[in-house]
Structures are given as C-alpha cells and as structure tokens.
Design a protein around this nucleic acid. Structure first.
Lengths: 167, 167
DNA sequence: ACCTGAACACCGTTCAAGT
DNA sequence: ACCTGAACACCGTTCAAGT
C-alpha cells in the first residue's frame, strides 16, 4: 500500500541514485508496481510530490538550539543546509524549483529565520544558499561522488557568508 | 534559411510570449516551418540552444564604463543584470540552468568581475543574483505582467546587495 | 550543405471503469 | 477507498534518405 510518506521516500531514493531527470511519475509508479494513474490518488500532481520530497529532505536535519551568538548560529545553520544541498544529487535544483513555486520547503526559511537578526539577512542567506548551490551544481556532483577537487565549494560559500554577515 | 542567431532570437521570443516550458525543439521548428530534425544541423542539442539564448539576452546590455567608485559600479551593474532577469519571463530559471551546466552566459560573470574588488565578492554577487531571481520567480512574473505589488523584489535585492558590499 | 520522415524511447495528466 | 487501462497531447534525439 502507498502512503504519501513512502511516495516521497521513494522519490528521494530515485533522486539520489539516478538524478532529478529520472524522478518521473512513471518511474515512481514502476517502483511501486502500480499504474501511473494510481499516484494521482495520493498526490495532486508531480510538483506536489517534489514538494513532499523537499520537506522530507529537510526533516532529518540536526539543527542545534540557538545560543547567545547569533552570528555563529547563523553560519552554522547555513552551512548545515548547504551541506544538505551538497550531499544529495540534484538536491539544489530540486529545492530551488520547489521554493520558487512555493510547493514546499518552508522549513528551510524557518531554520534560518530563527537565528537571523532581520528579514533582510534571512532573504540574503536564502538567496545565497540556493544561488551558490545552483551555480556549483557540477562541482557538487563530483564532490558527492567522492572523487574530488579539494573543498573549494564549501570554502567559497563560507567566504560569501562571512562577507554577508560581517563581524 | 536558418542561422544560429535567428534560432536563439526565435527562442527568446517564445520564452517571452509563452514561458520556458514552451521553448521546445518541436515548437521552435514549427516557428521556422521545418522538421524538428533540421534544427540539429544548426545546434548540437537543446541545451546549447538555451545557452545561445542566454548569450543573446546578455548582448544588448547597456553597461556603463567603470568609474573610480567600485561600490557604485558594482551595485549599478548588479541591478542592471537583475533587471534583465526580471523583465523577461522565466529568464531567471533559464539563466540559472545555463550557468549551472556551463553552456553559456559567461558575459554575466565578466560584467561583475570587471568592477569587483575580488573573486569572493564576484562569486557572492553571482549567487545572490541568480538565487534571488530564482526565489522571487512568482512575484517577478506578476511584476513583468504590469499588475503589481510595489517594487518589493527590487528593494529586497538592493538591501541584500548593500549588506554584502557594506560601506 | 541543408533538410525530411519516420522511428525510438520517453513524458504528465485525465477519466471511465473496475473491485 | 484505491487502483487499472487506455487515451491525449506532448517531449529530445538519431539516422537513413533525399536534393
């Protein structure tokens, strides 16, 4: 039997193993051994499945409680989220699309907002997060595959963060 | 007769009028009244057509020459690029994909780099640019259609820029 | 050099019909 | 309540064949 939860879990597995292009309704249906049309009883459309996948992705996120140093908190959380976008294949592209269309991923903003001094900073970090992840998609793919080119991507992101938050 | 230039021009018109989803090889071919396969003589694949489109988009860009105030230059150019991403439908999504896959849009980085004090700042602004544009896709669509909600998007971007560049 | 036609292997979504 | 089968209207890419 199919639950909404199992659905997004299978979607995430497909994403990790074969990339976003292979997360199709037909492919997911095949994984469950049901007809494609069966999925539409559990989920409105493909976009809402993608939304559920992002929500799932951000669920098991080990967020530390706020301390009295918001700068450190902010950097820590931003790096945590960035790492999450890094370590799953095509997670950046997926999250960008879901956030853009507003079909999920609200937790991402909440995690930042909780330790952010103001809305402008939250916005800037969100933009930096998805922009940087998107632009470094290729290098990230290599990084995720193990074979790699020093932690350039992570370092660059950290530097951009410092520039933004100042001291 | 079909030139690579005409190809991307038609692609951009399709983009502006119907959105990225409607920029398909088959749709472009129909516009030229040729078979789909004909396009593959002029262009390697779809991704390279999209790359050509972004290059075209960034060609007619009225970039002011550098002054002795790099902060002002940087802000001016970033806002110019942001406006460009704003005023064509789905231009943000298109540019993001093209930059991510490295199939075009190199001029964008050059425009920033020419007045940027260092690579870190260039990277950060590029990320901010495409991240902010992507995240505000919906609001941007409304903004492009005339009907709208104050210049919120532009203001927010400007604030993020200020935060990044400091004073 | 440039284009056609046909094929291949896919898509997302809907909807009557079944149990 | 949950699923099937079939259809609709699409995709990108390749490739032999034509002019």
């Amino acid at each position: 039997m199919i639950t909404r939860d199992e659905l997004s879990r299978v979607g995430l597995r497909l994403l990790a193993d074969h990339g976003l292009a292979d997360v199709s309704m037909r492919r997911v249906a095949k994984e469950f051994d049901v007809a494609v049309s069966a999925l539409y009883w559990h989920v409105k459309d493909k976009q809402s499945l993608l939304g559920a996948m992002v929500d799932q992705l951000l669920t098991d996120l080990n967020v530390a409680p706020p301390t009295d140093n918001w700068r450190a908190d902010l950097i820590g959380r931003a790096e945590l989220l960035y790492a999450k976008l890094l370590d799953t294949r095509d997670a950046a592209e997926l999250t960008a699309s879901v956030l853009a269309l507003g079909t999920g991923g609200t937790r991402m903003r909440e995690v930042i907002d909780e330790v952010s001094p103001n809305t402008v900073t939250t916005d800037a970090i969100m933009s930096l997060l998805i922009g940087h992840a998107t632009l470094n998609q290729q290098r990230m793919q290599a990084q995720a595959l193990g074979i790699d080119v020093a932690p350039t991507t992570t370092t660059t992101f950290r530097q951009a963060l410092d520039l933004l938050i100042g001291d």
